[in-house]
Amino acid sequence: MKLKVYLSGEIHSDWRTQIIEGCKRQELNITFSSAVTEHDASDAAGDGLGEESTSFWRDHKSAKVNAIRIKHAIESCDLAIIRFGEKYKQWNAAFDAGYCAALGKPYITLHDESLVHALKEVDGSAQAWAQNPEQIVNILKYLTTQA
């Protein structure tokens, strides 16, 4: 089975690389997609539409441009992995989880135990909760190799 997996959320650690490399080592038939993970590039996504006098409107335009990519990735994926990190609040990841839930797209949350209470509703709609990238790779291996 081939899967299309969307990787959403926290951009301050290498969790995406760990999952992608772990799946490569297992020779899993998976295609990955993601939002833009480089802060400056993401923040500048709407700059081609003209300069803004306030950061609010710059962020607003860039969020809308970024949403084109994210919407397409979520709608065309088979499964989303949604990572919540410790350092920052990932409101965008929570939104992605809600969008997946609304579309009936399965998703797995990835976060440590300290966020269980804060993410109880998000986890409640998820098909699984993982605490590390290795657990995600194990789930993806199961999904792609079991008859």
Rank of each mutant, 00 (worst) to 15 (best):
N66Y: 03
A67M: 07
A67Q: 12
I68W: 08
I70W: 04
K71P: 01
K71C: 15
K71D: 15
K71T: 15
H72R: 15
A73I: 10
A73R: 11
I74R: 03
I74K: 04
E75Y: 12
E75V: 11
C77E: 08
D78R: 01
L79K: 07
I82G: 04
R83I: 12
R83M: 12
R83Y: 13
R83T: 10
F84W: 06
F84R: 06
E86H: 08
E86Y: 08
E86R: 13
Y88M: 12
K89E: 15
Q90C: 11
Q90T: 10
F95K: 04
F95E: 00
A97M: 01
G98M: 02
Y99Q: 01
C100I: 01
C100P: 00
C100Q: 02
A101T: 03
A101H: 08
L103D: 05
G104A: 04
T109W: 02
T109K: 01
L110Y: 06
L110R: 09
L110P: 05
L110A: 08
D112Y: 08
S114Y: 10
L115V: 05
V116E: 14
H117I: 09
A118R: 09
A118K: 11
L119M: 07
E121W: 13
D123Y: 05
G124F: 04
G124H: 05
A126V: 02
A128G: 04
A130P: 00
Q131T: 15
Q131P: 00
N132C: 13
N132Y: 09
P133T: 09
P133W: 06
P133A: 07
Q135D: 12
Q135H: 11
I136V: 13
N138M: 14
I139P: 00
L140F: 04
K141S: 12
